[in-house]
Amino acid sequence: MSTATTPEATLLTQFTALDTATVSDALDACGLPPGQGGLRPMWGRPRVAGFAVTVELEPLTDEHTGTGAHIHTDAIAAAGPYDVVVVANGGRTDVSSWGGILSVGASVRSVRGVVTDGACRDVGQARQLGFPVFARAQVPATARGRLRQRATGEPVALGAVTVHPGDVVLADEGGVVVVPRERAPQVLETARRLAEREAAIEADVRAGVPLPRAMRDARLAGTEGTR
């Protein structure tokens, strides 16, 4: 079934038209946690928006022997064309929390991308697939024998932000923002107004209006720019 005209697809298309900086400003305006940096696209300059499918990892210890070989599989099996996989790994960059086979599995299910609070590997394979991967670093060390899946489909920490399943996740070269699903329409409308106002300020400046005047006019109108 086509996803082009569903309400969910429309919402995600509208978020994808915005950048993370603008949505972060909207989150601020709505009293919600802003976006965060340090989670970079590992290839190219993709921009993806999707609903969070969550995975939490933890170190594999002796008591977990034999339980770490199939991390992420439940999450990938549950994800689909509207979704972004969010992997919580506490920011660890000494071991990969996402790799090439996972990119293949997610790509086959038309998942929109992955954001992992940790490191990844096999970036060339993800690039060939056209599968967006956002991570804190690249590292060749495998998760096998080092990590296990602690939970899936539960709230997880992505840096300083808690991500709930179904939250809107927008990621681009500027960072990552997480929008609580129930607040998504409000944040979207606020972000679109901010984008329109900043576009107007930019147009004035390009037309020769001095920047202080353009910014002052925005303040007088209650629409101060944020760049």
Rank of each mutant, 00 (worst) to 15 (best):
161 V>N: 01
171 A>I: 02
123 V>D: 09
153 G>S: 04
205 V>Y: 03
133 V>Q: 08
211 L>S: 13
174 G>E: 13
194 L>N: 00
186 Q>W: 08
178 V>D: 00
168 V>L: 00
207 A>M: 11
205 V>T: 07
200 A>Q: 13
140 P>F: 11
126 A>M: 01
113 G>R: 01
126 A>D: 05
116 T>M: 12
153 G>D: 04
133 V>P: 03
194 L>K: 00
178 V>H: 08
129 L>W: 13
171 A>H: 06
219 R>K: 08
210 P>D: 05
134 F>I: 05
137 A>F: 04
159 G>S: 05
145 G>E: 05
210 P>I: 12
140 P>W: 08
190 T>G: 02
117 D>C: 07
138 Q>D: 15
218 A>P: 03
170 L>E: 01
124 G>P: 11
215 M>N: 11
193 R>Y: 05
189 E>W: 12
157 A>W: 10
189 E>P: 00
127 R>Q: 15
158 L>G: 01
180 P>S: 09
112 R>I: 04
113 G>W: 03
121 R>W: 12
144 R>G: 13
210 P>Q: 05
157 A>F: 08
147 L>G: 10
190 T>F: 06
205 V>E: 01
217 D>R: 13
164 H>W: 06
163 V>P: 00
184 A>S: 06
183 R>L: 14
127 R>I: 10
141 A>D: 15
190 T>E: 07
152 T>A: 12
180 P>H: 06
188 L>W: 00
130 G>F: 12
155 P>G: 00
219 R>V: 15
194 L>E: 00
148 R>V: 10
130 G>E: 09
190 T>L: 10
151 A>P: 10
157 A>E: 09
138 Q>W: 11
200 A>M: 14
153 G>V: 10
168 V>M: 01
176 V>A: 03
155 P>Y: 04
139 V>P: 06
182 E>W: 09
126 A>I: 05
137 A>K: 07
180 P>R: 04
117 D>Q: 07
136 R>V: 02
136 R>P: 00
173 E>K: 12
188 L>A: 01
122 D>F: 02
155 P>I: 04
216 R>M: 14
138 Q>M: 14
165 P>Q: 05
148 R>I: 12
212 P>H: 06
197 R>V: 07
168 V>I: 01
149 Q>R: 11
197 R>W: 15
215 M>F: 12
134 F>L: 07
142 T>K: 11
113 G>S: 02
190 T>Q: 10
194 L>D: 00
144 R>I: 15
116 T>Y: 07
212 P>L: 13
141 A>I: 15
208 G>S: 03
167 D>R: 06
189 E>R: 13
160 A>C: 05
126 A>W: 00
167 D>N: 08
146 R>F: 11
132 P>G: 11
131 F>V: 04
120 C>A: 15
206 R>E: 14
167 D>K: 06
137 A>R: 05
147 L>V: 05
133 V>C: 10
121 R>S: 15
139 V>W: 09
205 V>M: 14
187 V>Q: 02
119 A>W: 03
163 V>F: 02
218 A>C: 08
170 L>T: 02
199 A>W: 09
